[in-house]
């Protein structure tokens, strides 16, 4: 059995009478790219939120690197190196790109005394490199709130990389991004995975993107895990096709 970094076992979560997740189990492998798909309202973001500690789960277990994290609050999970980006992009709009990057330095690796130091030349260089990496270098001194939605998404992605996570959960990274830029983004996600060794777990609506990106894909429908497999297997799975076309 290969190295599992996130292990979700039998997780259920309901909001009032709505069962968002029912007995969901899945694994994310270390060093790989795992995808999560499903029709609208199938419980993908709920599962993400459960993993990162956004809300308590009703039952089941979630382990990160072997440690049970289902009872931990968001910041403690983030400090373990499990990071997420938001579907509704969240950046610091009043600050410029470089400031956003510097705020994203991995504070979890700093003692209080380290935090009381000024940013080093290396920090600035790394910020510039990563902004270059996502193609925002030219716009790095612009107020981030003035960037387009797609650019803000790229900035949020760069901020996440700056944080040096072990594992990164991306909620619809290509939504709102210009179709011509999407290929570039796929390439960058793959490079982030290979060059920085960051495990990626991606929610994605765009089938072309997820099929090109992920090595292993899970499909949720009506809050239940419907199928799991390689992109080929998922594409040819009748249950998945039915779920998307509404036969389920």
């Amino acid at each position: 059995m290969s190295d599992v970094i996130i292990d979700v076992q039998g997780v259920s979560k309901s909001f009032g009478g709505v069962k968002a997740n029912t007995n969901v189990s899945m694994q994310v492998e270390r060093g790989g790219i795992t995808g999560l798909i499903g029709p609208n309202g199938s419980g993908k973001t709920t599962l993400f939120n459960s993993i990162v500690g956004y809300h308590p789960i009703d039952g089941g277990s979630i382990k990160f690197e072997g440690q049970e994290i289902s009872k931990l609050p968001v910041q403690k999970i983030a400090r373990l190196g499990l990071l997420r980006t938001f579907q509704q992009t969240r950046i610091y709009g009043a600050m410029n790109g470089v400031e956003n990057m510097l705020i994203s330095l991995p504070h979890r690796k700093m003692s209080l005394l380290d935090a009381l130091k000024k940013n080093t030349r290396e920090d600035y260089e790394r910020a510039d490199q990563l902004l270059e990496f996502v193609g925002l270098y030219e716009k790095r001194f612009l107020k981030s709130g003035d960037l387009s939605f797609g650019q803000q998404k790229l900035l949020e992605f760069a901020m996440a990389l700056m944080n040096e996570p072990t594992c990164l959960l991306l909620d619809e990274p290509t939504a709102g991004i210009n179709p011509t830029l999407i290929n570039g983004l796929i390439d960058r996600l793959k490079r982030a995975n290979e060059e920085f060794g960051i495990t990626l777990f991606v929610i994605e609506h765009n089938m072309r993107v997820i099929m090109n990106l992920a090595e292993s894909i899970y499909c949720l429908a009506h809050g239940e895990m419907l199928a799991q497999g390689t992109p080929d297997e998922i594409q040819n799975d009748q249950k998945v096709i039915d779920a998307y076309l509404g036969a389920h």
């Binding site: 990162v52 609050p73 968001v74 910041q75 983030a78 400090r79 190196g81 990071l83 997420r84 938001f86 969240r90 950046i91 610091y92 709009g93 009043a94 600050m95 400031e99 510097l102 705020i103 994203s104 991995p106 504070h107 979890r108 935090a115 940013n119 901020m159 944080n163």
Partner: peptide
């Protein structure tokens, strides 16, 4: 910078560890 981050979006600051 970190306390500015708390002011502007504490939830995001939490999520960034």
């Amino acid at each position: 910078a970190a306390i500015n981050a708390i002011r502007d979006d504490e939830e995001k600051a939490d999520a960034m560890g």
